[in-house]
Amino acid sequence: MSDYFETLGRYLPRILDGLLITVELTIGGALLAVVIAIGLGLLARVENFLLRGFARVVIEFFRGTSLVVQLFFLFFVLPLPPFNVNLSPIVVGLIGLGLNYGAYGAEVVRGSINSVPKGQWEATTALSMSNVQRMVRVIFPQAWALMIPSLNNLLIQLLKGTAVVYTITIVDMTAIFNDMRRDTSVFFSYTIALLVYFVIAYVLSTLMGLLERRATAKLGRGIKLHVIPDAKGVAT
């Protein structure tokens, strides 16, 4: 067993490199996903039929066709003719994760905006606010507090999803622990891997919890939040 820890010590620099890749993919993918989620989520509720239809198709497409298929498509198909687009695996990973979880997030954004009480929308009309003012100054700040718990769930899903990227040659944390398994044992290597993922997930959740508290505090006390079902249909 002490040999194992010695090996772990030797692996430490590589583990930190892998950890960095995993965190980069998680944070980068999440930022991209949030941008996509807000864009598509807002577009999915405009009046214009074409724009709304476009948003719906994109959302359903990326929700409906498995993350792995999307990653493999970007990784294997894009470099071939006629596309000839050579993206580094990391970029492929970021785009794939961002699009997939962004599409899920778009439904969260749309649902949260729709659940801001009708009276709030009517008050903005009574005060003659423009559509942009209404969204930016009144509706979105309230919807934001509603969507954070679901976005938190998605963030954890995204972190877990990054573990599959080693199949497109990205040397993330899972890839390193796959190697370490051969020099230590299956139990030792993967237990540590799971622990590290758990700690990251825990830290991210805690940070999102702080963000949520800040957002709800801005709405004052006594506000009852409806919890929006997350991408998988459940509030946790």
Partner: peptide, 8 residues
């Protein structure tokens, strides 16, 4: 009737 003040 329900005031509709902006809570944010």
């Amino acid at each position: 009737q329900q005031f509709n003040l902006f809570p944010n």
